[in-house]
């Protein structure tokens, strides 16, 4: 298992403490990945509290399994994958989704507060910026998910493939197609 390649050697001590049953070590680990999990999970449901509940359950499961867990190098990958599955399963249970539905990827429009400074910094104009944003929003769900995992979570193609249950080659294709489509808008 060399998935994720998220080498956390400096976390080795925390990880060992966690596996020995130190709940504050779990707290530290949970904190480290919380933002990543939330940012990913909220794409599948707009219900913040629901996503937070799923994350809590996930960490409790991690705690319950602590003794049988391996090294830390695939924690993030493992958590992202588990969260994706859990949210889907819970949504099915609550009749929000059908068993064989693809997980529903959806992003809320961010609040445009002070994009002017950003536009100057990026040497672009509003029209181009909005064009790019529209393009991002209209990408097929899988493409959006792939670039989220790649750009935000820095997962490699193999890990992304595992998380999304598709082939590594499919991930590579999706990433390149997405970047190509986006750069055409620039």
């Amino acid at each position: 298992m060399s998935k994720g390649k998220e080498l956390l050697t400096d976390d080795g001590v925390t990880w060992d403490a966690f596996r020995k049953g130190d709940e504050s070590a779990l707290g530290q680990i949970a904190h480290k990945y919380y933002r990543s999990l939330f940012r990913y999970g909220i794409k599948f449901s707009r219900d913040r509290e629901f996503v937070k509940d799923c994350i809590q359950d996930l960490y409790l499961e991690l705690w319950a399994k602590r003794e049988s867990l391996g090294d830390t190098d695939f924690v993030k990958f493992y958590l992202l994958k588990s969260l994706r599955r859990k949210i889907h399963r819970e949504s099915v249970r609550r009749h929000w989704a059908a068993e064989d539905d693809e997980p529903n990827w959806e992003i809320e429009m961010p609040v445009d507060d002070s994009i002017e400074d950003r536009l100057i910094e990026l040497e672009t104009n509003e029209a181009q910026w909005h064009e790019l944003n529209r393009e991002l929003a209209s990408l097929p769900k899988r493409q959006q998910e792939v670039i989220h995992l790649r750009f935000f979570e820095n997962l490699d193609n193999e890990a992304i493939a595992e998380v999304m249950s598709i082939s590594r080659q499919a991930v590579a294709n999706l990433i390149y197609r997405t970047i190509r489509e986006l750069r055409e808008r620039l």
Binding site: E23, S24, L26, G27, A30, H31, Y34, R35, F38, R39, I42, K43, R48, K52, I55, Q56, Y59, L60, W63, I107, E108, P110, R118, L122, T124, Q128, W129, L132, N133, L136, A137, Q144, I147, H148, F151, F152, I179, L182, R183, L186
Partner: peptide
Amino acid sequence: LLLSAVYYRYDSNISEEEIEGEISALVQQI
């Protein structure tokens, strides 16, 4: 520009306090 748009669009705000609250609830439950 491309990356900025992705980071801008795909970010989700959750405050540090909100996270802290969740983590302490987790630790307390354990």
